[in-house]
């Protein structure tokens, strides 16, 4: 087997691999930008919390409609939005900060989700919901993931300027009457949608990996928000492609393979990253005359 064959043949030979690759591309386009903005808002752990929050909703969908795409999707979206809104309300009306109140809600959600699935299904179902089955992505799931990525891209493009300003200088945005809170809410909806899209393919626990890890990598390579988004999409898609190959050749589960590849890129970025990487701090580049 040549290298080229090893890299291309799995996708040429098997339709399920091609579908998985397209799903990864859609996830990269949808989740990459959202992850970058989460990171810049210092809400990296928020994605994690929300992904757990999706679980009980998906479980309720699963109990109501079995392993049905739409049941679990709608349940996941509903649960994610409820937790996001509740956590926001708690942090606004009590002394708890948003990250702390989210932690409270997502721990409860995770426990509730595991409880629901394990009392109403078998452990295989639980594994499916927690870790997804990207190799079993069917046409309907592909349309859902692609649709969410498209919607997310269009909405993000539309609210890009206020959203970036809300991250960069929220006090300024408030002082000029730019309704930052509204865009924050729209953005949270996008986070939930993209997590639900990722959950189809990677499961609730792994979906956030393809959202945050590429974003963290991008911080080490790009200087502005727009270029960071580009890097994040590239890293996410490359992780999806390489992760699928790893999964295929080594018979490893696909979700963890993809996220581990992204984690490896993250490790490399920490060491070699052009902006603030470890080596960049050690190796002195020759400086300019002026």
């Amino acid at each position: 087997m040549t290298v080229a064959q090893a890299l291309i043949a799995p996708f040429a030979d098997y339709a399920f691999m091609r579908r998985a690759l397209v799903a990864c591309m859609a996830l990269a386009i949808g989740s990459g930008p959202v992850g970058v903005l989460l990171m810049l808002r210092r809400m990296s752990l928020m994605g994690d919390a929300m992904s757990h929050a999706v679980l009980p909703g998906a479980a309720v969908g699963f109990i109501a409609a079995g392993l049905s795409l739409w049941g679990m999707t709608l349940g996941g979206i509903a649960a994610g939005l409820i937790v996001a809104v509740l956590a926001g309300a708690v942090s606004r009306n009590t002394l708890l900060r948003e990250d702390a109140s989210l932690a409270g809600f997502y721990l409860a959600s995770l426990a509730l989700g595991v409880m629901l699935v394990s009392t109403h299904g078998n452990s295989l179902d639980l594994l499916h919901i927690l870790f997804g089955t990207i190799l079993a992505v069917n046409d309907a799931a592909l349309f859902l993931v692609g649709g969410i990525a498209s919607l997310s891209t269009v909405v993000l493009a539309a609210i890009y300027r206020p959203l970036v300003m809300e991250c960069c200088d929220p006090v300024f945005l408030r002082s000029v009457g730019g309704r930052g809170g509204f865009y924050h809410l729209v953005f949270l909806v996008l986070v939930v949608l993209n997590l639900v899209a990722g959950f189809q393919a990677l499961g609730t626990l792994m979906a956030v990996g393809l959202m945050m890890l590429p974003a963290l990598c991008a911080r080490f390579w790009a200087r502005e928000v727009a270029s960071m988004i580009g890097v994040a999409i590239g890293v996410a898609f490359a992780s999806g492609y390489l992760g699928l190959l790893v999964s295929y050749h080594f018979r490893a589960p696909s979700g963890p393979s993809i996220v581990l590849v992204a984690a490896a890129v993250y490790g490399l970025s920490i060491v070699f990253g052009r902006r603030g990487g470890l080596l960049a701090g050690i190796v002195r580049r020759r400086h300019f005359h002026r």
Binding site: I159, P162, V164, C168, L173, V176, G177, R223, V225, M228
Partner: peptide, 28 residues
């Protein structure tokens, strides 16, 4: 506001930061 209220490491170009001054006329 006091300068302490801004994230000074935010990845945005000087020109883009300054351009936001036109917010009340151009909006988002």
């Amino acid at each position: 506001p006091q300068v302490a209220e801004i994230d000074r490491e935010f990845p945005i170009a000087v020109a883009d930061f300054v351009a936001a001054g036109a917010w009340s006329r151009c909006g988002g």
